[in-house]
Simulated assay, not measured.
Amino acid sequence: MAAALWGLLYAAVEVTWAAVGITVPWKEHASYAPAVQLLLAALAVLAGGACLASTRTLAMPGRAAVATALIVTIPVFVVGTNGLPMYFVTLVTLSGIDSATGLAQVLLNTVGAALVLLVGLSYRRRLRGDCSRCGRPHAGASDGPLVHPAASPAPKRTRKAVYLLMCGLLPWAGLKTIWTLGGDALGVSADDWQRTTSFGASGPSKAAASVGIDVTVLAAMAGGFLLLGLLYAWGQVFPRWTLIMSGRRVPRLLPLIPAWLTGIPLTMYGAVLIVMAPLMAVGVLPEIKPSGPFTTSSGITWFVEFGGLAFGGLGFGLVVAARSYAARTRPVCASAMATNRPE
């Protein structure tokens, strides 16, 4: 029902924006065309209707139609979450929001993607004959108590993969640190960089820069902390330094929600930058003309590549770690434990 209501709300907002002519940016210097907004409204209604139909007993054609609608619409709204981490950073650092409608669009897409994904997962489980609650096949009720697994770290292979992905942050973070500490790199002087980035910056951003710390590096460090929690047992049971929370089980969605909401958009954004920079370097895509503080196109190209490695590495690392965390912490219905217990 929640997904169906979201679909109606989303469609009403998009149709209103298109009819009134309100500008809704989807990237810098580019906005949604009214026709695209109307198409998104139609897809939201389709997704909401499919979610509502998924709760009913359907014949084979109906099940196929619902599955097709979910498969088609989910990627659209997942892609629409791109930009959520950037808005988050600007809000936390009090840097101001460039576009209220742009933020509203991203939030609507994020809520919709989450709801439709959850419905799709539940629907897939029912089609397979699994419990829609815990995802395991078992007899008996699915509304009884849940059994949570013991805390455990991620497999060694998963940890190595995440650490390797996190190495993508090093060139970008090093570059930002050089500039904030007064050094020059990529043809950009520290003075020019600080002069450009300090324009319109908030108090917290300026305070961090004054001690040589770029605020986006701080955001990346917060992402790294989240990653460690997803990889190790202290992310499942509050450690001693959390004082009154020590020893209690961490709510499963507490780390998973921010991991998915930031990891997926960062992965998509980083992948675009990683591919775009080499194509600009070889002339397949036009070079970006240098503008302050950059003095050369090659400097901008390298900066784009470093940003792609950083955002893509952090985002994909969060996705990999979250997937492992979700598998390791997934509770099971008590009736499933009883069903699978050996005689």
Rank of each mutant, 00 (worst) to 15 (best):
Phe306Gln: 12
Thr296Arg: 09
Gly299Pro: 14
Ala310Ser: 11
Phe316Pro: 00
Ser291Tyr: 15
Phe311Lys: 11
Gly317Ser: 07
Ala310Cys: 05
Ser297Gln: 12
Val304Asp: 13
Gly292Thr: 09
Val304Met: 10
Thr301Val: 15
Gly315Gln: 01
Ala326Cys: 13
Ala327Ile: 10
Phe311Pro: 04
Ser324Gln: 10
Ser324Trp: 07
Phe311Leu: 10
Ser291Arg: 09
Gly313Cys: 05
Gly307Lys: 02
Arg328Cys: 00
Ala326Arg: 15
Arg328Ile: 04
Ser298His: 11
Ala321Ile: 07
Glu305Phe: 09
Gly292Ala: 07
Phe294His: 11
Ala322Thr: 01
Leu314His: 02
Gly308Lys: 04
Phe316Lys: 02
Phe316Tyr: 03
Gly313Val: 05
Tyr325Ile: 04
Gly312Ser: 06
Thr301Asp: 15
Pro293Trp: 09
Arg328Asn: 07
Ser298Gln: 12
Phe303Lys: 08
Ala322Arg: 02
Pro293Ala: 12
Phe311Ser: 12
Trp302Thr: 15
Gly312Thr: 01
Val320Tyr: 00
Leu318Met: 06
Leu309Phe: 15
Ala327Met: 13
Phe303Cys: 13
Glu305Gly: 08
Ala327Leu: 10
Gly317Asp: 03
Gly313Lys: 00
Gly299Trp: 13
Ser298Phe: 09
Val304Ser: 11
Phe316Ser: 03
Gly307Ser: 14
Gly315Asp: 06
Phe294Tyr: 14
Ser324Val: 12
Arg323Ile: 04
Phe306Lys: 09
Val319Asp: 07
Gly292His: 07
Gly307Pro: 11
Phe316Gly: 01
Ser297His: 10
Ala321Lys: 03
Ala326Pro: 11
Phe311Val: 10
Gly308Ala: 04
Ala322Tyr: 00
Gly292Leu: 09
Phe294Asn: 02
Thr295Lys: 08
Pro290Ile: 06
Trp302Gly: 14
Gly299Phe: 15
Phe316Gln: 03
Phe294Trp: 14
Arg328Tyr: 06
Ala310Asp: 02
Tyr325His: 07
Gly299Lys: 15
Arg328Leu: 11
Ser291Pro: 06
Thr295Met: 04
Gly315Ile: 01
Ser298Leu: 11
Val319Thr: 05
Leu318His: 03
Pro293Asn: 10
